[in-house]
Nucleic acid binder design. Structure first.
Length: 835
RNA sequence: GCCGGGGUGGCCAAACUGGUCUAGGCAGCGGACUUAAAAUCCGUGGUCCCUUCGGGGGCAUGUGGGUUCGAAUCCCACCCCCGGCACCA
C-alpha cells in the first residue's frame, strides 16, 4: 500500500504488518533479568505464562485462544506498571512426531522443527507479545542437558529409582504408560486397551510428596476449585488403619488397609489380589493350587477394562487357607479375587459383607456368611430385607466388649487397642502412585544412567551432560527402546571404573520435559547452570498461568512435584510453580469438538489471512467468557471485523475533523455525557480484565463506548471542547481495546495521540465522572415495576416516596388501597406494599 | 455411584452484594444513501392480551415448592447437559 495515501477501508494486513515490524525491530517485549545492566528494579514483576505448545502441524484454534487470553493479561499488566516476562517455547519431544517418523522414515526432528517454524510464524502474525530471546524447544540439547541434570539430582536424593512393578503397557505404542496416561483402561494417546505387565522401570517418587501436594494448595492464590478437587481426588488421601491378619499354617502376616476398623468383628472372609506376591505360595500343595493358578493367569490376561467393567460379576477362587482375625481370634477363609487390586493399599482386604457393598456381592455370589456388627438400616439403599449391606453409622453389635457403643466413637479405641498389641496402627493411605517416567521410545530425553557389570547402576557425571540422543535407522519400537539398536552409543565406558558399560536405552516421559520449562525460560542461555538462583527467585512463581483444563492433573501436578523437590534440594525458594491458574474452555463448532475427521476445524492461518489477527483474537475473547467454551461461527468473526473497522473509521474521522491537544475541560451536555461514558468504559474494562477474566463484557463495554461516540459525534465536532472530547473518547476506546486487538489499538491511538499505546499507562477512571447527577428511580407497587422517574442523586428518602406516590401509574395501582409498607433503596428504587 | 460446573430471546451471551430480566454481538425486520447491489449509517428486537396508538396489563430465566416488600441470584426436591473419578477396601 502507498503510505502517503490514506486508505479508505480498514486493512488489517497492512496495519498488522506495520506494528509487527516495529515490535520486532525494537525488541519491544524483551525484558531484562536482575543482574543485567538493563534490569529495571523500580517496577514490580509479573510472570505471565501460557502452557507451552506441543508442535505438531500448524497451531489450531485452541492455541489461538490460550495465547490471545495470555497476551491480553500480559499487555494489561505491562501498562499497569509491571515488568512482565512473557516467554514462549515448544514441548518438542513426544509420540506424534515419532509415529510420523515411523511412517515416513524421516527423523522426528525434521517434522518437529518444521512445525516449530510454523508455530513461531503464526505467533508472530498473531502479534503475541513474546520475549523471543527466551525461546527454546525441549528437544534441544541445550535444554535437555538440564532435564538430565535434574534427573540426576532426583536420583541422588533417591527420588528417581528403578524397580520392577506391574505397569500399564500399551501394545500399540509398545511402551509403558504412567497411571495418569491410562484413561478408562485405554491408552491416552492411541486408545488401545492397555495391559498389565511386570517390568523393571524408572519411577519418580511423587508419593513422597503426597501430603505436601495436598497441604500446599493453601499457598496458591487463585486456582479453579475444580482443578484443586481433581488433584485432591487423584491424590486420594484416606485415613484408616493397618491391621495384621495372620496365616498360622504358613507363618505369614497379611497386613490390610481399612478405613473401617470399626467393622473388624464383621470380617467373615479375606481376599487377596491376583497379583499379590504370596498367592502362589499360599495355594501351593492345596487342592486349589491348579484353580488358583488358572484364575491368576486369566486375570493377568484380562484387560484393565474387563476387570473393572461396569456390571462386572464378582469372580474369585478359594485359596484353601485361613487367616486369623486379630480382634476375635476367628479363623476366616482366604480367597483370591480380582475385585481387589494390587495397586491400592496392601493388595489384600478383610471382607465385611454386612457393611461393604463389594464384599456383600462377593459373599452372596459365593454363599459366604454375612454378620452384621453395626445396627441401623438404610431401607432405600439396601439390597436385602435385613437392610444389608449397611454402610452408615450406628450402635455396634456382635463386637465383644464394644457392643452398644456408637461405631464412630469406638473407632479410635479399637485402633488404639490393636496398636497396643502390635496388631495394627493408624495409617494414612494414598491413591497416588509413583510416577513411571521411562518410555521404550526414541523421541525423548535420554536417561543419563549407565550400567556397569562391576559398579552396577552409575549416573553419568554432570560434566558429561548432555547424553545426546543418537541417530538411529529404525524408529519403530519392538518392545524395547529403538535406542538399543544404536550399538556404538549404547556401549560406553563406566564413568566410575572405566570398564565396559551399557547406557540406559529408555527415554523419559515428555511430561518430565514440561515439568520445569517455566524455570528455564527465566535463564535460557545459561551454560553454567539450569538457572541462576537469583533470577529464578526473582521471577518465580508464575503469577498467571493459562492453559487447557485437560492438564488439570498430569502436567499441573508433576510441575508442582518438581518445584517441591527442587525446593528441598535448596535450588529454589518457592514451593509452588503457579500462583494463579486460569483454565480456558474449549471452542466448538456446530456444537461439537473440532476434529479433522468431523471436518469442522477452523484454521487460524486462513482466518488471519481473511480478517486479520486482531479480529480473530478479539472474537475469541468476545464469543463467551474465556473460562467457558463457545461455539465458533464465521458470522461472529465478521461481526468483530465490522466493529474493528468501525473504530478504525472513527479514528480516521476524528483525526481529520479535530485538532490534537485540545482540552476537554468544562465539557457540558453531550460532551460531558461522552466523557462519562468513556470513564464508565475505563472502569468496566479494567475490572473485567484482571480479576475476572470476563473479556467478553470488557469488549462489549468498548463497543458501547464506540456506539455512544457515533451517536454523539456529529453534534460535537462543532465546538473545540466537544471535538476534543470525541478525540479523547476515540483514543480511549483504542487504548482499552489494545490488549485484545494490539495492532488496531496501536494504530488508532497513534493516529490520535501521536504516541505508542503500549508505552502509555493504562487509563484511570476519574471518580468524579463516574458519579451521576441524576438516576432513574424505579417505582414498584407490590414488587412490580410501575414507573421510572428521573431524580437528583441526592434526593432524600422521604422525598423519593412522595415522588413515587405522585406518579399517575402508581396512583392507578394504589387505587385507594392501604399502604402497609414503604421500602426505599436510595439510588435504586421505592417499593410500595399495599393490601 | 461419588465429586465439580452448567440450564436466561431464533443463536452466543449480560445482569456485581437479592432491587428495572435480556447489555453487547449474531441472525431477522424496517428505513436512509445508491440506477441497483455491496459496504456504511440510523431504527427495531421475549411472549400473549387490551389500546383513544400516548400507552396499559398478564406471563416469562430447566421443572415444582419455599424464604422475602422484592428471587435468574438464597433454601429444598426433581429433570436434563458437560467435565472428572470410579470394585480405592
Amino acid at each position: 500500500m502507498n503510505e502517503d495515501q490514506t486508505p479508505d477501508r480498514y486493512d488489517p494486513q497492512a496495519i498488522e504488518r506495520k506494528w509487527q515490524l516495529v515490535w520486532e525491530a525494537e525488541n519491544t517485549w524483551v525484558v531484562a533479568n536482575p543482574g543485567s545492566p538493563e534490569f529495571d528494579a523500580s517496577k514490580p514483576k509479573s510472570y505471565v505464562l501460557e502452557m507451552l505448545p506441543y508442535p505438531s502441524g500448524d497451531p489450531h484454534v485452541g492455541h489461538l485462544k490460550t495465547y490471545s487470553v495470555g497476551d491480553a493479561i500480559a499487555h494489561f499488566r505491562r501498562r499497569r506498571g509491571f515488568s512482565v516476562v512473557h516467554p514462549m517455547g515448544y514441548d518438542a519431544f513426544g509420540l506424534p512426531a515419532e509415529n510420523n517418523a515411523i511412517q515416513t522414515g524421516e527423523h522426528p526432528r525434521k517434522a518437529t522443527e518444521e512445525s516449530i517454524a510454523s508455530f513461531r510464524e503464526q505467533f508472530m502474525r498473531w502479534g503475541i507479545s513474546i520475549d523471543w530471546t527466551r525461546e527454546f524447544g525441549t528437544h534441544e540439547p541445550r535444554y535437555y542437558r538440564w532435564t538430565q541434570w535434574i534427573f540426576l539430582k532426583l536420583f541422588e536424593r533417591g527420588l528417581a529409582h528403578r524397580h520392577e512393578a506391574p505397569v500399564h503397557w500399551c501394545p500399540k505404542d509398545q511402551t509403558v504408560l504412567a497411571n495418569e496416561q491410562v484413561i478408562d483402561g485405554h491408552c491416552e494417546r492411541c486408545g488401545t486397551l492397555v495391559e498389565l505387565r511386570q517390568l523393571e522401570q524408572w519411577f519418580f517418587r511423587i508419593t513422597e510428596y503426597a501430603q505436601e501436594l495436598l497441604d500446599d494448595f493453601d499457598l496458591l492464590e487463585s486456582w479453579p476449585e475444580s482443578v484443586i478437587t481433581m488433584q485432591r481426588n487423584w491424590i486420594g488421601r484416606s485415613e484408616g488403619a493397618e491391621v495384621v491378619f495372620r496365616c498360622e499354617d504358613l507363618d505369614l502376616d497379611f497386613p490390610v488397609f481399612t478405613t473401617r476398623p470399626d467393622t473388624l468383628f464383621g470380617a467373615t472372609f479375606f481376599v487377596l489380589a491376583p497379583e499379590h506376591p504370596l498367592v502362589e505360595r499360599l495355594a501351593e500343595g492345596t487342592e486349589h493350587e491348579r484353580a488358583v493358578r488358572d484364575y491368576v493367569n486369566e486375570s493377568a490376561r484380562a484387560s484393565v477394562e474387563e476387570r473393572a467393567g461396569e456390571e462386572h460379576q464378582k469372580t474369585g477362587v478359594p485359596l484353601g487357607r485361613e487367616v486369623t482375625n486379630p480382634v476375635n481370634g476367628e479363623r476366616i477363609p482366604m480367597f483370591v479375587a480380582d475385585y481387589v487390586v494390587m495397586e491400592y493399599g496392601t493388595g489384600a482386604v478383610m471382607a465385611v459383607p454386612a457393611h461393604d457393598e463389594r464384599d456383600y456381592d462377593f459373599a452372596t455370589t459365593f454363599d459366604l456368611p454375612i454378620r452384621r456388627v453395626i445396627e441401623g438400616t438404610d431401607p432405600e439403599e439396601s439390597q436385602d430385607e435385613d437392610g444389608l449391606p449397611y454402610t452408615g453409622d450406628g450402635a455396634m453389635v456382635n463386637s465383644g466388649r464394644f457392643d452398644g457403643q456408637n461405631n464412630r466413637e469406638a473407632y479410635d479405641e479399637i485402633v488404639a487397642w490393636l496398636e497396643s498389641d502390635g496388631r495394627g496402627k493408624p495409617t494414612v493411605n494414598f491413591r497416588l502412585r509413583d510416577w513411571l517416567v521411562s518410555r521404550q521410545r526414541y523421541w525423548g530425553c535420554p536417561i543419563p544412567i549407565v550400567y556397569c557389570d562391576e559398579c552396577g547402576m552409575v549416573p553419568v557425571p554432570e560434566d558429561q551432560l548432555p547424553v545426546l540422543l543418537p541417530d538411529v535407522e529404525e524408529y519403530a519400537p519392538k518392545g524395547k527402546s529403538p535406542l538399543a539398536a544404536a550399538e556404538e552409543w549404547v556401549n560406553t565406558e563406566c564413568p566410575k571404573c572405566g570398564g565396559e558399560a551399557r547406557r540406559e536405552t529408555d527415554t523419559m516421559d515428555t511430561f518430565v520435559d514440561s515439568s520445569w520449562y517455566f524455570l528455564r525460560y527465566l535463564d535460557p542461555n545459561n551454560d553454567e547452570q539450569a538457572w541462576a538462583r537469583e533470577v529464578a527467585d526473582y521471577w518465580m512463581p508464575v503469577d498467571q498461568y493459562i492453559g487447557g483444563v485437560e492438564h488439570a492433573i498430569l502436567h499441573l501436578m508433576y510441575a508442582r512435584f518438581f518445584m517441591k523437590a527442587l525446593h528441598d534440594m535448596d535450588l529454589l525458594s518457592d514451593r509452588e510453580p503457579f500462583a494463579n491458574l486460569f483454565t480456558q474452555g474449549m471452542i466448538t463448532r456446530d456444537g461439537a469438538k473440532m476434529s479433522k475427521s468431523r471436518g469442522n476445524t477452523v484454521s487460524p492461518a486462513e482466518y488471519t489471512d481473511k480478517y486479520g489477527a486482531d479480529s480473530l483474537r478479539t472474537y475469541i475473547c468476545f464469543m463467551a467468557p474465556p473460562i467457558k467454551g463457545g461455539d465458533w461461527t464465521d458470522e461472529g468473526v465478521e461481526g468483530i471485523f465490522r466493529f474493528l473497522a468501525r473504530l478504525w473509521r472513527l479514528g480516521g474521522e476524528a483525526a481529520a475533523r479535530t485538532d490534537a491537544g485540545g482540552s476537554t475541560d468544562g465539557a457540558t451536555g453531550p460532551a460531558r455525557e461522552l466523557l462519562a461514558k468513556s470513564n464508565w468504559a475505563i472502569d468496566k474494562v479494567s475490572r473485567d480484565i484482571d480479576p475476572r477474566f470476563q473479556f467478553n463484557t470488557a469488549i462489549s463495554a468498548v463497543m458501547e463506548l464506540v456506539n455512544e461516540i457515533y451517536r454523539l459525534k456529529d453534534g460535537l465536532y462543532g465546538d473545540p471542547v466537544g471535538a476534543a472530547t470525541v478525540r479523547l473518547a476515540t483514543s480511549t476506546a483504542a487504548s482499552l481495546l489494545f490488549p485484545f486487538a494490539p495492532h488496531l489499538g496501536s494504530e488508532v491511538y497513534e493516529l490520535l495521540e501521536g504516541k505508542r499505546v503500549w508505552e502509555q499507562p493504562w487509563p484511570e477512571a476519574d471518580p468524579a465522572l463516574l458519579e451521576r447527577d441524576t438516576y432513574m428511580l424505579v417505582v414498584q407497587v407490590n414488587g412490580k415495576l410501575r414507573d421510572r422517574i428521573e431524580v437528583a442523586s441526592d434526593t432524600a428518602e422521604e422525598e423519593l416516596v412522595e415522588l413515587a406516590k405522585g406518579s399517575d401509574n402508581v396512583q392507578r395501582h394504589l387505587d385507594g388501597k392501604a399502604i402497609v409498607k414503604e421500602v426505599v433503596v436510595p439510588g435504586r428504587l421505592v417499593n410500595l406494599v399495599v393490601r
